[in-house]
């Protein structure tokens, strides 16, 4: 799943794919702002057919946290 998530982040937010690591913090390392996160949420929802409610967004701080979150929602790796 990591590779696909990296693709989505690179594509949706325009970040160099090589800079994206599991431990990357969206705000600190990738300098992503709240609207970039909204854009990522839209892409994740469409890619994995899940719904990500606004209150869940604050827990999605790193790339790995997104993977864990999606797996918790039953998305297959």
């Amino acid at each position: 799943m990591l590779e696909k998530i990296k693709d989505l982040i690179a594509e949706q937010i325009g970040i160099d794919r090589d800079d994206i690591k599991p431990e990357s913090d969206f705000k600190v390392d990738l300098e992503v702002d709240s609207l970039d996160m909204f854009e990522l949420v839209v892409a994740l929802e469409e890619e994995y057919s899940v719904e990500i409610p606004p209150e869940d967004l604050e827990n999605l701080t790193t790339v790995q946290s997104v993977i864990d979150y999606l797996q918790d929602k039953g998305v297959e790796a």
Binding site: S34, L35, F38, E39, V41, V42, E45, P54
Partner: peptide, 12 residues
Amino acid sequence: MNGQEVFKFAVR
């Protein structure tokens, strides 16, 4: 306003 919900709705 719930920014995330409005954004999602608008871009779709």
